[in-house]
Structure formats: C-alpha cells, structure tokens
Simulated scan of single mutants.
Amino acid sequence: MKLTKLKPFIYFLSVVLLIISYSLTTSARQEEPIPGADRPELYLDQLQGKNVGIVANQTSILTQSNNKHVVDFLLEKGIKVKKVFVPEHGFRGQADAGEKVDNTVDSKTGLPIISLYGNNKKPKPEQIADLDILVFDLQDVGVRFYTYISTMHYLMEAAGEQGKKVIIFDRPNPNGDYIAGPVLKKGFESFVGMHYIPVVHGLTVGEFAQMINGEKWLKGGLKVDLEVIPVAQWTHSTVYNLPVKPSPNLPNELSIRLYPSTCFFEGTIVSLGRGTHFPFQVYGYPDPKFGDFTFTPVSIDGMSKNPPHQDKKCYGIDLRGETLSHEFTLKYLLDAYHKSGKAQAFFNNFFNTLAGTDELKKMIMAGKTESEIIASWQEELKKYEILRAKYLLYN
C-alpha cells in the first residue's frame, strides 16, 4: 500500500486513540473520591452572609480546583472567613509532633490564626463569640491517637456550648477499611485518646463527628448543631492516595498504613525513624542485636527536631518493603521487646497512654503471643463494630 493511501488511515487511527485516551482519563478522574470541600454546591449558600471560623491546615485543599487552599477558595467566593483555627503541626504543617504552635497571622490573607494545640486545645468563648458557623476541614488518618479528632471534639463542644453550628467537610480515611487494636479504657483518657474506641476506628471525621454527637460524648451530654458534607465516589474499601501529607512525619501512603502499628514505639526506648526521611517505616535501637538495617536519626527542619537517639547509629528493621494492604500488627513491637531483654525498662510512661489501657503492656511482659493478645480484645471490637455501623455514611 502506498504511503499516500496510508495517511488517512493513520490520521483516523490517531484520532480514535486520542478519543480513547481522553475517555479513559475522564473516567478515571470521575471515579476518584471527591472530598467534601470539593462539593461547594452543598455548602456555599449556607455560608453566604455568615461570619465563619474554620479549622484548617495544609491538607485543607480542593483537589478538583488545582489544590487551592479551602481558605483562599472561600474568600474568593465572598465568604466572610474571620478566623482560622489550627491543630497540632500548625497551619502549614511544619511543626514537629508535640511542638508548641503559636497564635499568629496568615501572611497571605491577613487572617488571625489561633492555635488549638498546647494550652488552648478548646476554643474559648470569646474566640468564637463573633462567629456564626464553624467549619472543620482536616485530613485524618483514622487512628485514635492521631490528634485531629480530639481537636474536632473540642471544637464541637465549644460550638455546642455557644449555640454555634459546625459543618464538617468530610475526607476519605486511608485506614478506613478495617478496625483493630485495644479499645480505650476509662481512666486512660488524654488528648491522644479521648474516646472509647479502638486504635484503628474505621471512620471518617464526618462519621466520627456523628458518633460523638449521637453518643453524647461531649461534656455534659451536649449535642451540637452538626452537618457533614460527605465525600462522593468513595467507600470504606476504596484505596485513597492523599494529595498532601497529613503531618510532617507521615510522608507517604505506606507510612500512614504502618502508623497504627509503629506509633507504639513512641512509648518505648525504640526509634521509629523520626529524624530520617522514612519515619514510621523502620524501627531500631543503638544495639546491633536489633537487626541488620542501620539508620542514624538527625534533626530535620520541618520534620523532627531532636529525635530519639539523635546522631546515634540505630540497628533494626526496614519496613519499606511492606505492601499498602498492611493492617495493624503487634509483631514489630513484640520483636523489639524480646530483642531488648529490658522488660519494664523497654517502656516509657507514654506507652499506656497510647494504648489506652495498661493491659497491653501487662500481656507483653507476661509473654503472651500476638494471637493471644489480639484475642483478648475481640469482644470489645465486636461491640464497637455494632456501634460503628450506626454512623457509617459510606457502606
């Protein structure tokens, strides 16, 4: 066949391929989860003419609008945003875990930024007196000791006391496909565990807000005027890749999936990789008996200042080969505990706070296996699963 006869066919084929490529791209885009913030048709009307305060940070973006920050978006739409409240890690997500977050002013918008971490975890009456509606838009990771849900609890409580409405811009939970871990016991409440739920609770922030409200967990059994702007095109079995890391030391999807398991090392002598660029994805200690993999924690601006075992070579295990289907496990914790040979000295005072109970530590020290320990909390998980089902928005 001559080249001149082939040209129309080649042109036709290229057009067909372009159409197919566009269709596949559009279909994939349409099937991606759409967070609540990306659904302004559900909330803009009721925000118009109101004085609005918002809890936001670096994760509060509209993915359908070129990752525009929700505060900038609302201001562009003429919404009277008066104040921005920020959780642990601050407005831009640069503060290390536990680091003080100060009140300041946003250089871009001139809005006052009020910290809800440290001594002011709950908004004061005077801080919300001039507001009509409080919006909460943070990307959570579905783990009890991740403090954003504690910030949400206090926001709801303050709003309920002052008769203010709360609107939750819901977002997918990257650990929302299962529940696991010990349920928090009375007497172990703290900012890293305020509610009687398991370590992996399997709820979005919107679903969890409904549980807090429905179970009357706010102070004095108070209920707040609450509305959830739901995620579209998402279920609890949908894989979700976060467009922005939720906090400085959760840099990727694997760290988020490993976080429920490796965060327990915060309550021990063992490093979980703070001071490296792969935190929560390794564990180790300055002793060769802990493993063949080595890493040296250093101070990293914007991630970890003065990390455990700073500038010391740690020996341990590299977990970066794990898959994203990873679920909660105690095997890393038990492995490090047995290698240490330190018994009680392996733990610090934070361990029981993280666990939400003293039973886990007792069972580890008694030599219980992982299966025995996990079996001990199954009845409580079954009860929680029944409770959780009442508040699911994405079956």
Rank of each mutant, 00 (worst) to 15 (best):
Y337A: 05
T329G: 06
L360K: 05
K312Q: 14
F280V: 03
K339M: 02
E327Y: 14
T296Q: 12
H309S: 01
H277R: 11
L319N: 00
G284W: 00
N349R: 06
N349P: 01
H326Q: 14
F280K: 00
P279L: 00
N349D: 04
D358H: 09
F328C: 05
G321S: 12
S340Q: 11
I300T: 11
D311K: 04
T329I: 07
F278Y: 12
L333F: 01
G273A: 08
I300C: 02
T357C: 14
L319T: 04
I300Y: 12
G302M: 00
P308Y: 00
N306G: 13
M303I: 15
F346R: 06
L272T: 05
D358F: 06
A343D: 15
I300N: 12
H326D: 05
L360V: 09
T353K: 12
S299M: 02
K305F: 15
Y337N: 00
G341Y: 10
F350L: 10
F295K: 15
D301K: 03
Q310V: 14
P286Q: 04
S340K: 06
A345H: 01
F280Q: 11
T357S: 13
M303K: 15
F350A: 15
H309D: 09
P307I: 10
K305S: 11
G316M: 00
Q310N: 06
Q281G: 03
F351A: 14
D311L: 15
E359S: 13
A336S: 02
H338L: 14
Y315M: 10
K313M: 10
L319E: 08
T276R: 02
D292W: 11
D335R: 07
F293R: 05
G356E: 03
G321A: 13
K312P: 11
T353R: 07
F278M: 15
P288M: 14
F280D: 00
